[in-house]
Design a protein around this nucleic acid. Structure first.
Lengths: 218, 218
DNA sequence: TTTCTCAAAAAAATCGATATTTATTGACAT
DNA sequence: ATGTCAATAAATATCGATTTTTTTGAGAAA
């Protein structure tokens, strides 16, 4: 039908994928909840096939669990899972950041400074969220290791989900975090692997501890 | 219809998933190849829906790439990709093995000895393959870190694919490998993290180097 | 009561057909 | 020869209906 409203036409599957993903990340679809095709189909005003396919794709992101012949459910959440994610992130991002820095091109450093600037400037929460992820991913994307980047991106998103779970999306302490970001950026642009990595991991472990406390035991 | 031939009925999607997975791992569906729904549907004698869903699921395993609105293709293969997999495996399995050993229960050690025994006994190639994977996964499954295990399992399979790519499934030097397995097992049961990890990584790096050579540049 | 069985209801899985999109082809103008 | 563009072909994506499987719950048996 192509009602060209200026933008690109995307598939029903992709639309469903993005909506469901957002709903799971923000908790609109709570952890562990049964995801009935028929309900989602009505909710998203689309067919069953795109919904099924979107759910299958969300399996990759570990946001949806699939049990043969008895459908899908939103991935479970637990304190143990959160801590596992935190640990994996620390290991993988440490590796990726060091590689990025070692390969350090000035092009990359410029992209990094830019990403940091955009993040600082972002006031609106959803825009800040995007900019924040962009900054963190830029830190890692010079490692020339696409699978590693994919894992890190995946784990980043899973972590976000716990932020929503703990805080309901409320804008947690942003001031301290700004200083931490500066520190990571500074160490990185002066090619100090150890300092940059230490700053990054401390950044994660601090917010991790803060979240753990608020999560109680779920 | 339920023609109960003694076994369990499984879904068409799962059947398709397992077949396609095997075909990609062994190279029956070559890396990078376009995967047309219609062809696969005929090949597997099933409907388009199970095929699409199976392909979507294979996306999780990084064995299939999906491009919105223009279908699926078998994941590309390259020397760089192989080496990335090798590096990630070394990092992740090192972490998992150390955790497993540190939590070392006697139950786990017994399972490990058993898995090793079964692997040694296996003569037939496909049975050996399964037993080999079972042994390596058992080494890691006491780490109480399901995501880490999942990543390792995924990477193991991706690695197998390169073995087929390099050797066409031919049974590469198995003698040396038996000794390496003994060494890993011994160090593990005597709770020597460093020795076990060193043996494991050397095992991977040795076969890795061997494969790299045979892969040329693809 | 508890447990079991079986039929009805609900949900998942699958199929076959259609609509939509992308890729290909070849005539025509440059 | 070469590039453009519309017509055609091919493939993907989606829908609506049907089949199969799982779940539920009422009544029978222990």
């Amino acid at each position: 039908m192509m009602d060209d409203t200026g933008g690109r036409e995307i598939s029903a599957t992709r639309t469903a994928y993005l909506s469901l993903r957002q709903m799971i990340l923000t908790g609109a679809l709570p952890a562990g909840q049964k995801l009935k095709i028929e309900d989602l189909r009505k909710m998203l005003v689309t067919g069953a096939s795109p919904v099924r396919e979107a759910l299958s794709l969300l399996t990759s992101d570990m946001l949806v669990e699939r049990i043969d012949q008895r459908g899908f459910r939103a991935a479970a959440a637990s304190l143990e899972n959160f801590e596992e994610i935190l640990n994996l992130r620390c290991t993988l991002e440490d590796m990726a950041l060091r590689k990025s820095i070692m390969r350090g091109t000035s092009d990359w450093e410029e992209r990094l400074v830019l990403a940091h600037h955009r993040m600082k400037r972002a006031v609106d929460t959803p825009i800040f969220e995007d900019a924040h992820k962009a900054f963190h991913m830029t830190l890692l994307d010079n490692a020339a290791s696409p699978m590693l980047e994919r894992y890190c991106s995946q784990l980043y998103d899973l972590n976000i989900r716990y932020r929503y779970l703990a805080a309901g999306g409320e804008n947690y302490q942003r001031r301290e975090i700004a200083a931490e970001h500066e520190e990571i950026l500074d160490a990185t642009v002066r090619h100090d692997c150890d300092a940059a990595s230490a700053a990054l991991l401390s950044h994660y472990r601090l917010t991790g501890a803060y979240l753990s406390k608020r999560l109680g035991d779920l």
